[in-house]
Simulated assay, not measured.
Amino acid sequence: MQSLKATDPSQLGPYRLAGRLGAGGMGVVYLGVSLTADRFAIKVITPGLVGDDEFRERFAAEVEILKTVTGSRVARLERANLDDDPPWLAVMFVPGLSVHRQIEEAGPLETRSGAMLGALIVDGLRSVHEAGLVHRDLKPANIMLGPAGPIVIDFGLARLHERDSHVTATGQPVGTLAYMSPEQARGDRDLTAATDVYALGATLVYALTGHTVYGQASPVALLRRIDDPTDLPDTTGVPAELKSLVDGMLGYEPSTRPSLDEVYRRLVEVATADGVSVEVVRTILAEQTYVEESLELPDWTADPLVDDGDAFTDEEDPTRLVSAPPIREVLEVKTSEQPAPVADVGWLVDEMRTTYARKATL
């Protein structure tokens, strides 16, 4: 965690800011601490972009999405204030590493732990889908490894099924290339839960082997490979117990992929093979993957929390949304995961950089 700069606020809403967790051209992420010492990731738009209507609309849309998803396997929205200066939102802070960083630093998971990881991620995706959403950017960097297991994060690209026709332009791929389904690569608007099943399959390949399904290549080359039904995803190294399942999840046609329920059932079967209990496997997974990074907080004993007045009154919902016209979708293509900063919240910075970008190029 980096120290606050002289130009940074010391408080946003009811949260005292302890430092910077990350920053990019589009926004800043702070570690926020409540009066009762709860910690949250506080995200704001870069001051120079606060006056841009499109950025504010996208920020408001993200808050709306976050309000619809609940569950123990997703990063919840704590509260937000879109009328504050700058607008901000506070989300659940997970002190562990992302799956990407964990595998990068410690190597692939063994079969049983990888299967349990996948089953717990399915629980998170169920919460997303039950809210009528498709995540559209599930990947190792968007799964945090907390003390109780994985937490699905980053809903900047999530969309309600019925809204896809308004916000996504045909022919514009949206997502992260290394984990993008063929229908995403084509820029299809009508994405379904099968898109997230594909991304989970690609994520499991990385967690179990340390490599992606199409390797490193230019964005254009990757798009062509993903959309070529004869160029099969590389699942080399996936344990035999999981290979047929993972291969099915990475099927070219969405209709051929197994449902989340089927994926869940088969992952649990592998995780608990030979009579090993779920509790034991979860304990092993946590021991192998949870790394709590120490974050030293400032001494605030002589600096009482400022009263933010009526920012959160019973009469006024701080998470209410301003009405906005449909937002045009932009081309968002990311070719590789980036190493995360201390406290591993680079996903928020990456989201600010790509989700709110006016344009992106291949």
Rank of each mutant, 00 (worst) to 15 (best):
residue 180 M to P: 02
residue 16 R to T: 11
residue 107 G to F: 11
residue 96 G to K: 06
residue 233 P to N: 12
residue 80 A to F: 03
residue 274 D to I: 01
residue 353 R to I: 06
residue 162 E to S: 08
residue 252 Y to D: 01
residue 289 T to F: 05
residue 75 A to H: 03
residue 183 E to Q: 10
residue 336 S to L: 13
residue 274 D to W: 11
residue 153 I to A: 11
residue 301 T to M: 01
residue 256 T to F: 06
residue 269 E to Y: 09
residue 294 S to D: 12
residue 170 T to D: 03
residue 131 A to T: 03
residue 279 E to K: 14
residue 360 A to M: 10
residue 242 L to Y: 07
residue 36 T to K: 12
residue 275 G to P: 09
residue 181 S to M: 08
residue 211 H to Q: 11
residue 312 F to S: 05
residue 87 P to G: 01
residue 300 W to R: 13
residue 223 L to G: 13
residue 263 V to I: 14
residue 73 R to L: 02
residue 129 H to M: 08
residue 94 V to N: 03
residue 134 V to F: 10
residue 241 E to P: 00
residue 324 A to R: 14
residue 303 D to L: 09
residue 108 P to Q: 10
residue 206 Y to N: 02
residue 174 V to D: 06
residue 199 A to E: 08
residue 192 T to W: 04
residue 16 R to Y: 10
residue 197 V to Y: 10
residue 340 A to R: 01
residue 239 P to M: 04
residue 57 E to F: 06
residue 83 D to V: 08
residue 151 I to Q: 02
residue 261 D to K: 13
residue 352 M to W: 05
residue 276 V to Y: 11
residue 36 T to Q: 13
residue 157 L to Y: 12
residue 358 R to M: 08
residue 21 L to H: 04
residue 311 A to E: 13
residue 220 V to S: 13
residue 274 D to E: 14
residue 123 D to C: 04
residue 304 P to I: 05
residue 158 A to M: 00
residue 260 L to F: 15
residue 24 G to F: 08
residue 226 I to R: 09
residue 314 D to I: 12
residue 242 L to K: 06
residue 277 S to V: 05
residue 179 Y to K: 05
residue 20 R to Q: 10
residue 267 L to W: 12
residue 298 P to D: 05
residue 347 W to H: 15
residue 189 R to L: 04
residue 224 R to I: 00
residue 211 H to V: 04
residue 108 P to N: 07
residue 150 P to G: 09
residue 111 T to V: 12
residue 46 T to S: 11
residue 248 G to V: 00
residue 95 P to M: 09
residue 90 A to Y: 10
residue 54 E to R: 15
residue 17 L to Q: 07
residue 206 Y to T: 01
residue 158 A to H: 05
